[in-house]
Amino acid sequence: MARVAVVVGNPKPASRTRAAAEHLARELTGEAPELVVDLAELGGRLLDWSDAEVPALVEQVAAADLVVVASPTYKATYTGLLKLFLDRFAPARGTGLTGVAVPLMLGGGPEHSLAPELTLRPVLSEIGAPLTTAGLYVLDSHHDDPTAYEAWLGRVRPLLTPLLTTGVPA
């Protein structure tokens, strides 16, 4: 059974971004994610390097076989809240991602549809993910519409299913 984590960079707790990320994780694995890190619930603690919970969450996310990393699109990129969390990952110090990373971003219109590919996917690779899927951009107004995910899932699911069953190569 794959260990699945979701990281949500929306500054609003229990957001549509979180719902979309959890939906995507379930669609990819058939099960609810084992760990959901809603960064809005951590708030300013992300800036406190003495806080014990944040590094523990980083370690749990780093060890996941599949990580859905989700953010609303702000100024054509992911949120500062998500950046604060991702800055905690350091592959050279043993806290890099070790599983498949899935970049997911929600936005108000199609003009930012490349944001997951151009901004989020590269940083996920940089922090150690041995495999980062193509990014998925979903219109915020369609976050709860399963058809908004179908084409992407049709392309990615056949590639991920064998990896999640047999293990991600390091």
Rank of each mutant, 00 (worst) to 15 (best):
Glu117Leu: 05
Trp49Asp: 15
Leu153Tyr: 08
Gly80Cys: 14
Val69His: 09
Pro146Asp: 03
Gly94Met: 01
Asp140Arg: 05
Arg45Met: 10
Trp49Val: 14
Leu136Phe: 09
Thr147Met: 13
Leu153Cys: 07
Val123Pro: 01
Gly80Ile: 15
Lys83Ile: 14
Ile127Cys: 01
Lys83Thr: 15
Glu150His: 11
Glu117Met: 07
Val67Cys: 09
Gly43Val: 11
Pro55Thr: 01
Leu66Arg: 05
Ala148Met: 01
Thr132Gln: 06
Glu150Trp: 06
Gly108Asp: 15
Gly94Lys: 03
Leu82Lys: 06
Leu136Gln: 07
Asp140Lys: 03
Gln60Gly: 12
Pro122Lys: 01
Pro55Arg: 00
Leu57Gln: 12
Arg88Ala: 13
Glu126Arg: 06
Ser71Asn: 13
Leu153Ile: 04
Leu97Cys: 04
Val68Arg: 05
Gly43Cys: 14
Leu97Thr: 01
Glu117Ser: 06
Pro55Cys: 01
Asp140Thr: 09
Ala92Arg: 09
Pro72Gln: 09
Val68His: 10
Leu120Met: 05
Ala90Leu: 06
Glu126Ser: 02
Leu124Pro: 00
Gly109Asp: 11
Ser141Asn: 06
Gly96Gln: 00
Arg121Asp: 00
Gly44Ile: 09
Leu42Cys: 04
Lys75Glu: 10
Glu150Gln: 13
Glu150Tyr: 06
Lys75Gly: 05
Leu136Val: 08
Leu57Cys: 12
Pro103His: 11
Arg155Ser: 11
Gly44His: 11
Val69Phe: 09
Pro91Tyr: 05
Leu42Gly: 03
Leu86Pro: 01
Gly99Ala: 13
Thr132Glu: 04
Gly44Gln: 10
Thr132Asp: 04
Val123Phe: 04
Ala76Val: 13
Ser71Trp: 05
Tyr74Asp: 10
Ile127Asp: 00
Tyr74Lys: 13
Leu46Thr: 07
Gly109Trp: 11
Glu117His: 08
Ala151Lys: 15
Ile127Trp: 00
Ala148Val: 01
Gly44Glu: 14
Ala76Ile: 12
Pro55Ala: 00
Arg155Tyr: 09
Leu139Tyr: 03
Ala70Thr: 08
Leu114Asp: 06
Ala70Val: 07
Leu114Ile: 13
Thr119His: 14
Arg45Asp: 09
Gly154Arg: 10
Asp87His: 04
Tyr78Met: 13
Lys83Asp: 13
His143Asn: 00
Tyr149Gly: 01
Val54Cys: 04
Val69Ala: 11
Thr98Leu: 07
Pro110Ala: 12
Leu131Gln: 12
Leu118Gly: 09
Tyr137Thr: 09
Val54Gln: 02
Leu66Ser: 08
Pro103Gln: 11
Gly154Ser: 12
